[in-house]
Design a protein around this nucleic acid. Structure first.
Length: 509
RNA sequence: GCGCCUCUAGCUCAACGGCAGAGCAAUGGACUCUUAAUCCACAGGUUCUGGGUUCGAAUCCCAGGGGGCGCACCA
């Protein structure tokens, strides 16, 4: 059977429904269409056969009959999952299902592997995550969720551009670790013979662009952090960073809440969400509260960066918060907040004003000594964003970097290094600037109601497959060390045969 | 890294110390309005691996492997 090189589609499943939704039961439209997609279900009835064709806009029924369909026998023998192109008149069956009455059809791709249980789908995480192409067909809602992510990113770009922001691309390879405190991945460039870090944040390059006159700039940056995996962490993730000259962190709070509300309204039609079984309303304005006030509220204790270190350690002990000898007052207060308060905040809430000690890139607070103008947006007990009035003073920045470098020398691999090119840029003058970083994956999790980051990443980071094997197959292959390599390769081919599937209502987005 | 849970047919799952099963998929057949179509027939297994206990192990124990969740680190 010859597979064509192209196929002319005149209507998507969704378009067929839109154009012909008014047909009465048993009525024929008199209009022909060609449609294409995967055959997901098949119902045979003697000399009639019904098939459910799915494309990425939805589903439409194929209605075949021995008296009007070419190669009717072949049609009834199509394995589920086959890509089919079909041509025929749009009709509504007597039982009320809008259908393409198939005159001619052809296979556009064979499905040598099935999609498993057509009703229950596939639940094995190994298959769902490693073979996302299978998951997308087999499990309801997966494709719609992934498409929603795509639309969220697209809407974010459009919205920021409407606010006068310009998108840029800055280097992924960084010679100096900076812009955040995190463990980097390292690599090496041979021709230059230099070690490089994969970026943990685009922050410093973006602020250099503000120095260069890009007054409102943003990047949707894939960043990399060499840390653990969890339902909320993937080693590579997507961070939106935006910087606006002449703005402070208060302006950035407004930008954040307006963006989140805009996305929710556009994608879901409302800012009132349900997440993890609880109500969540993203409508602005979000609550603003200082970090120390929230600690007082949730831990029942008043703290201040001016307090005696011994007293703060005692408070940490009282709340079961471990501390280290070299932790200063600011670090202790942050630890206390993170252990006792952050997870309790359902939000959305802007937690404002952090200790200077733990914020090397944020500007001194205009009225609170020892604090900086920084906020984190907390939603559902998690950090959604982090933003500041940016530190613009090169001397102060150098002192903060040197303090970071000291911590690095003491063994803190997450601490920043002194970034001389960045300091040189600051010496050219960074105007007052507001900066913001939003974890886009977490924002999409909120919008899709998913509680695992892997549910909104098409291909999350996983342990690599071995010879195409996973799980116990791999164990067996390794165990059978007496076998030849060829045998293992054959086993791999068989093991890869695990297939999958299910039914899926139309996930029209 | 530590703790808990889990691994049975292509998929989803039963059997919980006594003959390893069902639904779906696949295969063969019946059926001119189906909707997870239905009906009949047929086929499908190293119960993750290795060891142990037992008259007898998918089941209990030990070790290893894969996966999940939680903790820690972090966004």
């Amino acid at each position: 059977m010859a597979i064509p090189y192209r196929f002319e589609v005149s209507a998507s499943a969704n378009e067929v429904h839109r154009r012909h939704g008014g047909l009465a039961d048993g009525e024929e439209s008199g209009q022909g269409v060609t449609v294409a997609g995967r055959l997901m279900l098949r119902r045979e009835q003697g000399k009639l056969a019904f098939g459910t064709l799915r494309d990425w806009t939805g589903e439409v029924q194929l209605f075949a009959g021995a008296s009007w369909t070419g190669d009717f026998a072949g049609f009834t023998g199509l394995p589920l999952g086959t890509w089919v192109g079909a041509e025929g008149e749009v009709v509504r069956t007597r039982r009320g299902e809008l259908s393409v009455k198939v005159a001619r059809w052809q296979v556009l791709a064979e499905a040598r592997r099935g999609f498993g249980d057509k009703w229950r789908g596939v639940s094995d995480p190994e298959v769902r995550l490693r073979q996302r192409e299978v998951d997308l067909w087999a499990n309801e809602g997966v494709r719609g969720r992934m498409l929603l992510r795509s639309r969220a990113i697209s809407l974010t770009r459009r919205w920021l551009e409407d606010q006068g922001f310009v998108e840029v691309e800055t280097p992924v390879f960084h010679p100096v670790q900076g812009g955040a405190t995190a463990k980097p991945f390292t690599t090496h460039h041979n021709a230059l013979d230099v070690d490089l870090f994969l970026r943990i944040a685009p922050e410093l390059y973006l602020k250099r662009l503000v120095v260069g006159g890009f007054e409102r700039v943003y990047e949707i940056a894939r960043v990399f952090r060499n840390e653990g995996l969890s339902t909320r962490h993937n080693p590579e993730f997507t961070m939106l960073e935006a910087y606006a000259a002449y703005w402070d962190y208060g302006d950035m709070m407004r930008l954040t809440e307006e963006l989140a509300a805009h996305l929710a309204t556009e994608l879901l039609g409302t800012t009132s969400l349900t997440y993890a079984g609880r109500d969540l309303d993203l409508a602005p304005p979000w609550r603003r509260a200082t970090l120390v006030d929230l600690v007082a509220e949730h831990a029942g204790v008043e703290v201040d960066v001016g307090m005696d270190i011994g007293q703060l350690r005692g408070i940490c002990d009282d709340h079961g918060v471990p501390w280290k000898e070299h932790d200063g007052p600011g670090k202790l207060i942050l630890e206390l907040y993170e252990k006792t308060t952050e997870g309790q905040l359902w939000g959305p809430v802007f937690v404002c004003d952090y200790p200077k000690e733990v914020s090397p890139l944020a500007r001194d607070h205009r009225s609170q000594p020892g604090m900086v103008e920084r906020f984190e947006g907390i939603v559902a007990g998690r950090e959604l964003c982090n933003a500041f009035s940016e530190l613009v003073d090169p001397d102060e920045q150098r002192a903060r970097f040197e303090d970071q470098a000291r911590q690095k020398a003491e063994g803190d691999i997450e601490a920043m290094a002194v970034d001389e090119p960045y300091l040189r840029a600051l010496e050219h003058g960074l105007p007052p600037t507001g900066g913001l970083g939003i974890g886009m994956d977490r924002l999409v999790m909120l919008l899709t109601g998913t509680e695992s980051i892997r549910d909104i990443l098409l291909f999350p980071t996983l342990r690599p497959e071995f010879f195409g094997l996973t799980g116990h197959d791999k164990a067996q292959a390794v165990d059978s060390s007496s076998r030849s390599a060829g045998t293992i390769a054959e086993d791999a081919a068989q093991a890869a045969d695990s297939v999958v599937t299910g039914t899926v209502p139309p996930d029209v987005v």
